[in-house]
């Protein structure tokens, strides 16, 4: 992982003046739980429960949290692959929360996804050429030659040889397959790419290659990223700002530096203390959380973290703390602040 170059900083400084690309307001996505012999909805899995954040043009927002906290659901809802239960999704100021049909299909050109599973995310009956050219065919009228040229260009941009064109997904390694998925996402020159744990299924040795590729492409194609990971160490090298999720809620969001220098939420503190530190002088005491993550079907009252929080007070189970700006650009949802 240490091979990943650190962010040059240029985007971050400009980031503040840049306009907002994506604005998420009080987003909720609940999955219905069917039960009984009539298959009625008996409960809801509150996978995403009241999420608000913005992403500026050219920025990378990292989203971290344990497996099952609702990261994929968040990404899929923003891309309108799932229907939000409540809230608003504004993309370039346009409300895309409730659009559908051909209107939604047209809008999809501007936001794409890189998926977590390099195996399940490529159609096994399509060749690489088919996979990467399909988005172009859906949106553009191009001759066969133009199409092939464009696809070969995309393949070379993601570091795949032209021979890949006629091959099938199963002939590639996980890392290469992820490159194919990246080429597909890039084909339409989108403005936003949501990368849902793009390297977590990959061999450690190829993780940094794929991460570096994503970074290079960001400069080349002027991309904005929502970068999802369950692991802070991956996000650290990729992001300008980081949001920490717990049980469908955003508990802290801050710039990269601010979050690492001074994590405020007890959950973030625990996550950071769990990052393996190679330099012994910097080693901190690891905060080990007690108990399991509660079920999102029946989340705790008040602060969602109170059942495991080492600092929990009595009122924590009663009041749900809202996200509050404690320092410039550093928001946290905890009654301690």
């Amino acid at each position: 992982m240490n091979k990943v170059e650190t962010k040059k900083g240029s985007v971050q400084e400009k980031g503040l003046e840049k306009e907002t690309l994506l604005d998420i307001q009080n987003l909720k996505t609940y999955y219905p739980v069917k039960g009984g012999f009539l298959k009625r909805t008996v409960a809801h899995v509150k996978a995403v429960d009241d999420l608000s954040f913005q992403i500026k043009k050219g920025e990378t927002l990292g989203l971290v949290g344990e497996s099952g906290c609702g990261k994929s659901t968040t990404g899929r809802t923003i891309l309108r692959l799932l229907k939000p239960t409540e809230g608003k999704i504004l993309f370039e100021g346009k409300d895309i929360t409730n659009i559908s049909g051909s209107q939604l299909r047209k809008a999809r050109k501007d936001f794409q996804m890189v998926f977590q599973d390099p195996y399940a995310s490529l159609n096994p009956t399509q060749s690489v050429g088919d996979i990467v050219s399909e988005p172009l065919k859906n949106f553009k009228k191009m001759s066969k030659n133009e199409l092939k040229e464009e696809v070969l260009d995309l393949l070379s941009r993601v570091g795949l040889p032209p021979e890949a064109y006629h091959k099938y997904g199963h002939e590639f390694s996980g890392g290469q397959r992820q490159r194919i998925g990246i080429a597909r996402a890039l084909a339409l020159k989108p403005k936003l790419i949501i990368a849902d744990e793009p390297v977590s299924a990959l061999d450690v040795s190829v993780q940094s290659q794929v991460l570096n590729l994503l970074k290079e492409l960001q400069g080349e194609f002027d991309l904005t990223y929502l970068f999802i990971a369950h692991d802070l160490s991956v996000v650290k090298h990729m992001s300008d700002r980081i949001g920490v999720m717990y049980l469908g809620n955003l508990v802290e969001i801050a710039t990269n530096e601010s979050l690492y220098a001074e994590p405020l939420h007890p959950y973030t503190q625990a996550l950071i203390s769990a990052i393996p530190e190679t330099d012994p002088s910097k080693r901190k005491n690891r905060i080990v959380l007690q108990g399991d993550v509660p079920s999102p079907q029946n989340p705790p009252s008040g602060c969602p973290f109170h059942t495991r929080c080492p600092m929990a007070k009595e009122e924590c189970s009663k009041i749900k703390p809202a996200l509050k700006e404690v320092k410039p650009g550093h928001h946290v949802a905890c009654i301690l602040y």
Binding site: L81, F111, Q112, S121, E134, N138
Partner: peptide, 22 residues
């Protein structure tokens, strides 16, 4: 349930195309 179906939807395939081609 496979992610390639989500991918097909997100690259702008119509439902009929998702069914027939994917």
């Amino acid at each position: 349930e496979n992610e390639y179906i989500l991918a097909a939807i997100s690259i702008g395939c119509k439902p009929s195309k998702v069914i027939v081609k994917h």
